Simulated scan of single mutants.
Amino acid sequence: MEHTGTTRRTQAERDAITVEIGYALSSAAFLGALAFGVVAGPALLFELPHAVRRTLVVSGVCVASVLFVVRAVSVLVRFGHEAGAGSRSRSGSGGQPSQPGRTNPDS
Rank of each mutant, 00 (worst) to 15 (best):
G22L: 05
L25C: 00
F30A: 04
G5S: 04
G22V: 01
S27Q: 04
D15N: 15
G60M: 08
V63Y: 06
L31S: 01
T6Y: 12
T4Y: 11
G95W: 08
L44F: 12
Q96R: 15
T103V: 09
S59K: 06
G41R: 08
P105C: 08
F79H: 12
S89E: 15
G80W: 07
Q99D: 14
A35R: 00
G92R: 04
A12D: 10
G60W: 03
A83D: 13
H50S: 11
R14C: 10
R53N: 13
V75R: 09
R54D: 11
V75S: 05
D15G: 13
H50P: 04
R71F: 05
I17W: 06
C62P: 00
G92I: 07
T18K: 15
A40C: 06
T4I: 14
F79A: 09
T4H: 15
L76W: 03
H3G: 10
L76H: 07
L45W: 11
A24V: 02
P100E: 07
A16Q: 14
V38M: 10
T55H: 10
S26K: 09
I21T: 13
L67K: 03
A72D: 00
G94M: 06
Q96A: 14
V61E: 02
E20T: 15
R90T: 09
S74M: 01
V73Y: 09
Q11E: 13
V66C: 02
E13D: 07
V69P: 05
G94S: 02
H81N: 14
A72L: 04
M1F: 07
F68K: 05
G92H: 06
M1N: 01
H3E: 14
E2F: 10
T18R: 14
A16L: 13
A40L: 02
F36Y: 12
R8I: 13
L44H: 14
D106F: 14
N104I: 04
R71S: 02
G101D: 05
G60Y: 00
A35I: 06
S93G: 05
H50Q: 14
V58Q: 11
G84D: 14
G80T: 11
R8N: 12
Y23T: 15
P97Y: 13
P105W: 07
L25N: 03
R14Y: 07
A33L: 03
C62E: 08
S98C: 02
V38K: 05
A24P: 00
G101C: 03
R88I: 12
T6L: 12
P49S: 11
G80C: 09
S93D: 11
T18C: 05
V70T: 10
T6P: 06
V63R: 01
L48F: 05
L45R: 11
G80N: 14
R71M: 01
S107Q: 13
G37S: 08
E13I: 06
S26A: 11
L67C: 05
A35F: 03
S59L: 10
S74D: 07
T55C: 09
Q96V: 10
C62G: 06
S59I: 01
G22H: 03
F68P: 02
L48Y: 00
E82C: 02
S91Y: 08
D15L: 11
T7I: 15
L56F: 01
V61M: 08
C62D: 08
G101Y: 02
V73H: 08
R54F: 09
S74A: 04
T18W: 08
G41E: 05
T4W: 12
H3Q: 15
S65T: 13
H81G: 00
H3L: 15
V70G: 01
I21H: 06
T7Y: 10
G94V: 03
